[in-house]
Design a protein around this nucleic acid. Structure first.
Length: 189
DNA sequence: TTATCGATGGTA
DNA sequence: ACCATCGATAAA
């Protein structure tokens, strides 16, 4: 069983601290993942797979370990890792990373759109296998449970009960965690 | 510092 | 007609 062929929430937890590597035409960019969200299956109304099998969602139901990249609000890309068994429409959205290599000083990598832009990820990467052909993940220092914080996923208010599930995970005190809109939410002291 | 608003295009 | 968003601008 591969790393990815497990429930999305498990993978979302273990991706914290992992390194995401993108290589293309001579450059190499690496971030340490600090924020993820699990989209756990067809029954999860916040998950795109809940729309059923369509050209867009097909990759979610396919083999684990592939990229699911989509365009949102007409201008931003979101990068996901397809998880769980083939036939299960589940994925993990990567929402923030700490720049480690190949990124200009000061570039922001908090938020799924900014992260994709910084790494050069686009629809061209959709459905790609995360296996070293310019796009892959590497193990990092494990992140202990004491450093993991959880909360509701961002921007899925339409999903009823599922909007409140604590499927957003992030590393406490990281400066590269995105901040959701709305009041009272403090995650950087 | 927080709040509001509009850009922009794939998807169904 | 929706959106798993961001950056500019305004208010304070």
């Amino acid at each position: 069983m591969s790393f990815y062929a497990r429930p999305a929430l498990t993978v979302a937890r273990e991706l914290l601290g992992a390194r995401l590597v993108v290589e293309e035409g001579g450059w190499r960019r690496v971030v340490r993942i600090v924020e993820t969200e699990a989209y756990v299956g067809e029954h999860d109304l916040a998950c795109h797979a809940s729309k059923g099998l369509t050209p867009r969602t097909e990759v979610l139901f396919g083999p684990p370990g592939r990229a699911y990249v989509y365009l949102i609000y007409g201008m931003h890309h979101c990068f996901n890792v397809v998880t769980d068994a083939e036939g299960v429409g589940a994925a993990v959205l990567v929402r923030g990373g700490e720049p480690l290599e190949g990124l200009p000083p000061g570039v922001r990598t908090d938020g799924p759109g900014r992260l994709c832009r910084a790494l050069g990820l686009s629809l061209a990467h959709n459905r790609r296998e995360l296996r070293g052909h310019g796009l892959y993940l590497e193990e990092g220092e494990p992140v202990s449970e004491a450093w993991v914080q959880r909360g509701p996923r961002v921007g899925v208010e339409y999903a009823g009960e599922w909007a409140r599930a604590p499927y957003r995970l992030w590393i406490r005190d990281s400066r590269h965690v995105s901040r959701p809109p709305g009041r009272g939410f403090r995650e950087r002291p």
